[in-house]
Design a protein around this nucleic acid. Structure first.
Lengths: 103, 103
DNA sequence: TCGATAGTTCAGAAATTGTGAACTAATGGA
DNA sequence: TCCATTAGTTCACAATTTCTGAACTATCGA
């Protein structure tokens, strides 16, 4: 819980989780090198995924040379009710507003 | 938003906010020196309240020698919908479970 | 004005986070 | 089999953030 809020309080990780959660298939780590305005180095990306994994937000499975990530939405809803949905909804709303301002 | 998750991802601050939010009257800062297992120094307490204020979670007003804090529940619901409620509910549930285990 | 109480500020210590470099793991040729 | 390539992890140190004791400000009451 504490770990979840901490994980999602970082804007890059929040973006990564949003991307994984909204995708209809598993996402590889390196797909998120450009979530931020400046490119995220792969060592940093690896750490971010580690934080997300340890918070129980995503599951990672190696398939050949790549690691595929999926959001653990079911388990999260079971344990925390509407918490994750509420956070992601607020996150999405905020993204909208940010984009609207940026033009 | 990011600031809110960050503020509440610290267990001491989460406890403080829960205390302020659930109280039926404004709470002074020093009322929370014992939220943790070890006493929280007043400089640390002051910083925690600063973080909560800057995240927009609480409002602080000086009354004589003390500072009274209230949760900005109305504004928060307006801006973020059920987010804060969801976090506080998950927090409360977790507190219950922790206490149950501790005996 | 003095003493007490409540909180803030500051500076250095302690802890956490970010990142390049070196490494591991798996794959696909030659 | 061996080499090159791709994807990610680990490590060590730099950079940043957080914690906290000491000194300070603010307010009140005597």
């Amino acid at each position: 819980m504490e770990a979840i809020l901490h994980a999602l309080s970082d804007p890059v990780r929040a973006q990564i989780f949003a991307g994984v959660a909204s995708a209809d298939c598993a996402q590889i780590c390196s797909a998120f090198a450009d979530v931020s305005d400046r490119p995220v180095p792969k060592s940093t990306l690896s750490q971010h995924f580690k934080v997300l994994r340890e918070a129980g937000l995503v599951r990672s499975e190696r398939h050949g040379v790549e690691v595929r990530n999926t959001a653990r939405l079911g388990e999260l809803r079971e344990r925390f009710g509407p918490l994750i949905e509420a956070i992601m909804q607020a996150h999405a709303k905020q993204q909208c507003e940010t984009r609207a301002k940026a033009g």
